[in-house]
Amino acid sequence: MSSSLKTKLDRKLNSYAPLEPTDKTKDFLCDFFKILPPDGKKNLTEDVSGCANDEKLRQLVQSIRTGLLIPMKAQGGKTPTEITPSPRSGVEDSIENLKSLNIEPISRSSQSQLRHHGLERDGNKCLATGKYSHRHAHPRNAITTHLEAAHIIPFALGSFQANNSETVDRHAKIWVNLRHYFPALCNMSFTSEQINSEKNILMLDSQIHTEFGQFRLIFEATGVTHQYRIKTFPDTVTGPIQNLPRNRLVKFRIHKGRWELPDPKLLEIHACIGNFLHLSGQAEIIDKLLNDFEDCGGLAPSGGTKIEDLLAVSSLSLLPSIANETPDSQNSTEQQRRPEKQDAVSGLSLLPPNVDETSDSQKSTEKKQHPTEKEGRLRAKFPDTENKPWAS
């Protein structure tokens, strides 16, 4: 079935005429098809086939970028504001149907209990490195670290203003996209109300959490129940991953309590998006877009950032993405916010993103390590380079 779908997709895309040499519409859709599960491939192929012209294909790409990829990656205070509508048939009905479910927004009120359950389940250890929480019971000579509860489906995708029709609409559009391309979410009846559940979190070293949250570190299934291979990419920060197992294999198990282990289907969705971001070069593109927006609060000085892309993110809803072990850390972050400013493009009131624990020197290093789109596409395609750092 997959081969016939690919043939149908190629037949449609082979007639696509790029607007300019940098137009990657065809590559984007081909790469996205590669990483999707079988039922997601079917839906994408139908979407592409249903596009009446090249402009509709470009609109489809923008709807996936602004209504799925950017919301998933834009953690640390940014949430999508403008989402390009999908040209696929019936999408408006799907949005209205999801809104009719009256899904409630999630909050931080249950975070302390969720962390406690995660620590108990995971034995007070990081599931990637095996390091122990420095604040909880551990062997005398154990290596310890700061542990955080990392959400697989980001917390920001479940937090919205229930009394604001725009945020409710935005929330529905994102989840319609997610459920359309990853139908497993429908099959397991997973909605944003379940983001704060044990099956959607894993306890990770704080620095590993950052890499996981930015899709620079993923857990790929091995065929053995709850065993995963940790995969990193050329732009992964090298310091935190030095303590990963040499064979990159980890096995999850319940140490104590009756809490669910991280759900394999949710981890598969996270891995699919991580692989696509790097295979397609979108990781570098979106990181640059978010950095430009964060630095300038609007258009990049060079004018190189497209208005529709910049309007896809906003720091109106400052939602911290890290569920730390210390609840008070959120309060201290709130106090560090700078005065708000206004976006000259949209006229929206903007607040800068939350202050995280990464030093300025670390942030500077991370920006320098980002590959170009061409490098990202080439190096992500070769297995022998996927776990190696970029050359300095």
Rank of each mutant, 00 (worst) to 15 (best):
T222W: 07
F233M: 12
Q207D: 03
Q207N: 06
P245K: 13
P240D: 06
R229V: 06
I201Q: 10
M203N: 01
F219T: 01
I241F: 07
I230T: 13
Q214R: 05
I208V: 06
F215E: 01
N243A: 08
A221F: 05
F215T: 04
E220Q: 15
Q207T: 00
S206A: 13
I201F: 08
E211R: 02
D205Y: 12
G213K: 10
E220T: 15
T236K: 04
I218T: 05
G223S: 12
N200A: 03
M203A: 00
H209F: 06
G213Y: 12
V237R: 05
T238F: 15
K199L: 12
I201L: 12
Q207E: 09
I241L: 14
G223T: 00
P234N: 03
V237H: 07
L244K: 05
I218D: 00
S206H: 07
Q227S: 11
T232C: 09
V237I: 07
G223A: 10
I201N: 07
L202R: 03
Q214M: 10
Q242R: 15
Q214G: 07
T210L: 14
T210G: 12
I230P: 07
P240W: 03
T232F: 15
P234I: 10
V237W: 09
L204H: 00
I230G: 04
F212D: 04
T222Y: 11
D235L: 12
L217S: 01
A221M: 11
T210M: 14
G213R: 11
R229T: 06
Q214S: 12
Y228M: 11
P245S: 13
G213H: 13
I218H: 05
Q242P: 00
G239F: 08
P240E: 07
D205T: 04
T238Y: 15
T210R: 11
E211C: 10
N200W: 08
K231C: 14
S206G: 05
L244G: 05
I230E: 10
T210E: 09
P234Y: 03
D205Q: 06
H226Y: 12
P234K: 01
D205C: 06
